[in-house]
């Protein structure tokens, strides 16, 4: 098997095939799985992670990362609950305040990363601690409950028979998908990820684009916080802990290169669905919640191994194996 005559099919096609296989397998294993109710419920459960995964795809395509999203979710949830319950904000204003706080949190990340040149990994580790710390400090670990009934509409209500928040997720998917695939902004994201220097010399407003992307990341964390609080009807400072792992796993599993430059929203959605199916399927077949995160971690590492392997296969024919980082002068990969 020295020759590899077939070009590897697109990552998304492989994922979709795996997804169909998993669906079939789970449908056979459990009769409770392949019901409309269960599938809609699974969609509902992945909404918060899904919303955050949209801008995360953008962030990772630009070659960055945002580890602070889980903490930003917690901070926004606490600000929503506290501004309403303790500071006397009307609830709609509290919601707006939480969304604004999320955007501000993302803006701070983006500002320090672009203006001061701090690596995204370190900056967002710092705000991972800071935002969670603010959530804990402000709330003093007290929870807020007893929201008015109308507030539950977004997280527990339905629209045309489908959970309300799923519509929000669908809108977000379409919006981010179109922006990434069909606009110059989307192309600019990939250009920055391939080579930031080249993007700068091409006259792209690299800093402004990155700032927008990190701000969007924070804003979506705020939106996810609103939906989360509405779904469970209570606010706690540990909300969203570890969500960054689920989000990054979904994005990377969806074929977005962790080195930046490539990725699609379709891939991310498939990654999300696959992870949610794994979780649901495992729990239906009697595996406990803690073991499912083992599976997610394994899948994350394996998926990168496989895509790295495929990448090397594709590149090995064309250039000698160089230990230096991937060439920035040549686009060594296929555009979708």
């Amino acid at each position: 098997m020295t020759a590899w005559p077939l070009k590897l099919p697109a990552h998304e096609a492989v994922l979709a095939a795996i997804l169909v296989l998993a669906l079939a397998l789970l449908a056979v294993l459990s009769d409770r799985f392949f019901t409309l109710d269960n599938l809609l419920n699974q969609g509902l459960l992945m909404t918060e992670v899904g919303l955050i995964a949209m801008p995360m795809t953008f962030v990772i395509i630009t070659g960055g990362i945002d580890l602070s999203v889980g903490s930003a979710l917690g901070m926004c949830a606490i600000l929503l609950g506290y501004s309403w319950h303790n500071w006397g904000f009307p609830l709609p204003l509290a919601i707006g305040f939480a969304l604004a706080a999320g955007a501000a949190g993302g803006f701070v990340n983006g500002w320090v990363i672009t203006r001061l040149g701090v690596p995204p990994l370190i900056m967002t580790i710092a705000t991972l601690a800071l935002y969670r710390g603010l959530a804990e400090g402000i709330s003093q670990a007290h929870s807020v409950r007893n929201y008015p009934p109308w507030f539950a509409a977004l997280g527990q209500g339905t629209l045309f028979g489908v959970p309300a928040q799923l519509w929000v997720l669908v809108v977000a998917i379409v919006l981010f998908g179109v922006v990434l695939a069909r606009t110059t902004f989307g192309r600019a994201l990939r250009a920055i990820g391939h080579s930031e220097t080249a993007a700068r010399f091409s006259g792209l407003p690299v800093d402004r684009i990155k700032l927008a992307v990190y701000t969007a990341s924070g804003f979506m964390a705020g939106l996810a916080a609103w939906i989360f609080v509405s779904r469970v009807g209570t606010t706690r400072s540990d909300m969203g802990m570890g969500v960054e792992l689920d989000v990054i796993a979904a994005v990377v599993l969806g074929g977005t290169s962790i080195f930046g430059g490539t990725g699609t929203i379709v891939g991310t959605v498939l990654g999300l669905a696959l992870i949610q199916l794994l979780k649901d399927g495992l729990s239906l077949t009697g595996v406990k919640g803690d073991a499912t995160i083992v599976v997610i971690g394994t899948v994350l590492i394996l998926s990168i191994l496989v895509s790295n392997f495929a990448e090397r296969r594709r590149e090995s024919g064309r250039m000698p194996p160089a230990p230096a980082p991937r060439p920035t002068t040549e686009k060594g990969r296929n555009e979708p």
């Binding site: 370190i122 800071l130 710390g133 603010l134 804990e136």
Partner: peptide, 11 residues
């Protein structure tokens, strides 16, 4: 409960 916020600010 402010400890983690202090840590974050310190980093």
């Amino acid at each position: 409960f402010w400890l983690r916020a202090v840590q974050g600010a310190l980093i």
